[in-house]
């Protein structure tokens, strides 16, 4: 086994874990949104906005995975021959977004689902519902930043 396998494992985890988290989060919001829309179909647009929020972690994961693929040459240039240490470094760099993305998406989903309940009664407070969900996303953004900085910092 050479370093490249570890690097790709990192990419897979970033995309996979963050994606799972987002899927769960988006699903959670969808469930409560469907309940609200049963009563008032006109709230579809607003609830869809809230449902989209926990989806960003999956995108951050994909983004990280994409940077890894590009850096190790899976897309574009030739495949690099990484040492174990390089591969392990790339793997480590993927962890912040993978772990934080996974968990924060679920919790953001819960906050957004509660937000759906909020706009069911007070549609004019959509902004506040969004902000509550975004407070959670902050940590996914920070994790993404850490992952990106690490990836750009590793010499390959």
């Amino acid at each position: 086994m050479t370093g490249i396998v570890l690097a790709l494992l990192g990419a897979a985890l970033a995309v996979g874990l963050a994606g799972i988290g987002s899927a769960m989060g988006v699903g959670l919001v969808g469930q409560s949104a469907a309940g609200v829309v049963t009563e008032d179909p006109d709230k579809f647009g607003q609830t869809l906005l809230l449902q989209a929020l926990p989806g960003t972690q999956g995108i951050y994961g994909l983004l990280t995975g994409f940077i890894i693929m590009q850096r190790v040459g899976v897309i574009g240039a030739d495949l690099l021959n990484l040492t174990m240490q390089q591969g392990f470094s790339v793997f480590m760099a993927s962890l912040p977004v993978a772990i934080v993305g996974f968990i924060s998406a679920i919790y953001q989903g819960k906050a957004a689902a509660a937000g759906v309940g909020l706009i069911a009664k007070r549609p004019e407070e959509l902004g506040k519902a969004i902000i509550y969900a975004v407070m959670v996303e902050t940590y996914a953004v920070l994790a993404l930043l850490a992952s990106i900085m690490l990836l750009f910092g590793i010499a390959l």
């Binding site: 995108i59 983004l63 590009q70 953004v141 993404l144 930043l145």
Partner: peptide
């Protein structure tokens, strides 16, 4: 405020991924 950088990078890299 580091989120400004992260979101800017996210837009750019996803766009690049689409182009690739």
């Amino acid at each position: 405020y580091s989120r400004l950088l992260a979101l800017g990078l996210a837009t750019g890299v996803i766009a690049a991924a689409i182009n690739t």
